[in-house]
Protein backbone atom coordinates (compact mmCIF):
# COMPACT_ATOMS: atom_id res chain seq x y z
CA UNK A 1 0.00 0.00 0.00
CA UNK A 2 2.65 2.49 1.08
CA UNK A 3 4.95 1.28 -1.73
CA UNK A 4 2.19 2.26 -4.16
CA UNK A 5 2.02 5.71 -2.58
CA UNK A 6 5.81 6.06 -2.91
CA UNK A 7 5.62 5.16 -6.60
CA UNK A 8 2.78 7.67 -7.08
CA UNK A 9 4.81 10.45 -5.48
CA UNK A 10 7.88 9.56 -7.55
CA UNK A 11 5.79 9.56 -10.74
CA UNK A 12 4.32 12.92 -9.79
CA UNK A 13 7.80 14.38 -9.30
CA UNK A 14 8.73 12.93 -12.66
CA UNK A 15 5.80 14.75 -14.29
CA UNK A 16 6.96 17.99 -12.68
CA UNK A 17 10.46 17.27 -13.93
CA UNK A 18 9.25 16.78 -17.50
CA UNK A 19 7.37 20.07 -17.32
CA UNK A 20 10.46 21.84 -16.04
CA UNK A 21 12.59 20.22 -18.75
CA UNK A 22 10.12 21.30 -21.45
CA UNK A 23 10.29 24.89 -20.27
CA UNK A 24 14.07 24.84 -20.10
CA UNK A 25 14.24 23.42 -23.64
CA UNK A 26 11.95 26.11 -25.03
CA UNK A 27 13.96 28.86 -23.35
CA UNK A 28 17.17 27.43 -24.77
CA UNK A 29 15.62 27.20 -28.28
CA UNK A 30 14.52 30.81 -28.08
CA UNK A 31 17.94 32.02 -26.98
CA UNK A 32 19.66 30.34 -29.95
CA UNK A 33 16.94 31.70 -32.25
CA UNK A 34 15.43 28.39 -33.44
CA UNK A 35 12.12 28.85 -35.27
CA UNK A 36 9.05 26.82 -34.18
CA UNK A 37 10.82 24.30 -31.94
CA UNK A 38 9.25 20.83 -31.34
CA UNK A 39 9.75 19.11 -27.95
CA UNK A 40 12.22 16.22 -28.00
CA UNK A 41 10.63 12.76 -27.75
CA UNK A 42 12.33 11.99 -24.38
CA UNK A 43 10.46 14.78 -22.63
CA UNK A 44 7.10 13.79 -24.12
CA UNK A 45 7.66 10.14 -23.24
CA UNK A 46 8.74 10.98 -19.69
CA UNK A 47 5.59 12.99 -19.18
CA UNK A 48 3.19 10.37 -20.62
CA UNK A 49 4.82 7.34 -18.96
CA UNK A 50 4.93 8.95 -15.54
CA UNK A 51 1.28 9.99 -15.92
CA UNK A 52 0.26 6.36 -16.60
CA UNK A 53 2.45 5.06 -13.76
CA UNK A 54 1.00 7.63 -11.37
CA UNK A 55 -2.60 6.80 -12.30
CA UNK A 56 -2.06 3.08 -11.77
CA UNK A 57 -0.15 3.64 -8.53
CA UNK A 58 -2.87 5.89 -7.11
CA UNK A 59 -5.61 3.38 -7.97
CA UNK A 60 -3.62 0.49 -6.44
CA UNK A 61 -2.67 2.36 -3.28
CA UNK A 62 -6.07 3.88 -2.52
CA UNK A 63 -7.33 0.83 -0.63
CA UNK A 64 -10.24 -1.52 -1.22
CA UNK A 65 -12.50 -0.40 -4.03
CA UNK A 66 -16.23 -0.49 -3.47
CA UNK A 67 -18.55 -2.39 -5.82
CA UNK A 68 -20.59 -0.16 -8.10
CA UNK A 69 -23.35 -2.58 -9.13
CA UNK A 70 -26.91 -1.68 -8.26
CA UNK A 71 -27.31 -4.97 -6.44
CA UNK A 72 -24.47 -4.10 -4.07
CA UNK A 73 -26.19 -0.78 -3.42
CA UNK A 74 -29.51 -2.54 -2.75
CA UNK A 75 -27.83 -4.82 -0.17
CA UNK A 76 -27.70 -1.79 2.12
CA UNK A 77 -31.48 -1.65 2.29
CA UNK A 78 -33.60 -4.16 4.15
CA UNK A 79 -37.14 -5.13 3.30
CA UNK A 80 -38.28 -3.70 6.66
CA UNK A 81 -36.76 -0.35 5.83
CA UNK A 82 -38.26 -0.20 2.35
CA UNK A 83 -41.75 -1.19 3.47
CA UNK A 84 -41.76 0.87 6.69
CA UNK A 85 -43.22 4.23 5.42
CA UNK A 86 -42.04 6.44 8.33
CA UNK A 87 -44.27 9.44 7.55
CA UNK A 88 -47.42 7.32 7.91
CA UNK A 89 -46.55 5.75 11.26
CA UNK A 90 -49.39 5.64 13.77
CA UNK A 91 -48.87 5.72 17.50
CA UNK A 92 -51.99 4.26 19.07
CA UNK A 93 -50.41 0.82 19.32
CA UNK A 94 -49.25 -1.50 22.09
CA UNK A 95 -45.69 -0.10 22.06
CA UNK A 96 -45.97 1.45 25.50
CA UNK A 97 -46.88 -1.89 27.08
CA UNK A 98 -44.07 -3.81 25.41
CA UNK A 99 -41.24 -2.35 27.47
CA UNK A 100 -38.98 -5.05 28.87
CA UNK A 101 -40.12 -6.16 32.30
CA UNK A 102 -37.06 -4.93 34.22
CA UNK A 103 -37.55 -1.37 32.90
CA UNK A 104 -41.14 -1.09 34.00
CA UNK A 105 -41.88 -1.42 37.74
CA UNK A 106 -45.57 -2.22 37.28
CA UNK A 107 -44.83 -4.90 34.73
CA UNK A 108 -42.15 -6.43 36.98
CA UNK A 109 -44.70 -6.66 39.79
CA UNK A 110 -47.20 -8.30 37.47
CA UNK A 111 -44.57 -10.76 36.25
CA UNK A 112 -43.66 -11.69 39.83
CA UNK A 113 -47.35 -12.32 40.58
CA UNK A 114 -47.75 -14.46 37.48
CA UNK A 115 -44.73 -16.49 38.46
CA UNK A 116 -46.02 -17.02 42.00
CA UNK A 117 -49.42 -18.07 40.64
CA UNK A 118 -47.95 -20.66 38.29
Amino acid sequence: MSAGKGVAVAAFLSILHSGFAAREYLRYSKSIGRQDPALPIEIVLECLISLVVMTVAVVVSVGNLKPISYEAEMKRYSIDGIYSRPSFQVFNHRGRFLRPIADHPAMAEQAAKDKAAS
Binding site: Y77, S78, D80, G81, S84, P86, G95, L98, R99, P100
Partner: peptide
Protein backbone atom coordinates in the same frame (compact mmCIF):
# COMPACT_ATOMS: atom_id res chain seq x y z
CA UNK B 1 -30.89 5.94 7.16
CA UNK B 2 -32.38 2.46 6.87
CA UNK B 3 -35.74 3.99 8.01
CA UNK B 4 -36.48 0.81 9.93
CA UNK B 5 -38.78 1.19 12.93
CA UNK B 6 -36.67 0.11 15.90
CA UNK B 7 -37.69 2.46 18.73
CA UNK B 8 -36.44 0.32 21.62
CA UNK B 9 -32.90 0.10 20.23
Amino acid sequence: QSSERRPFE
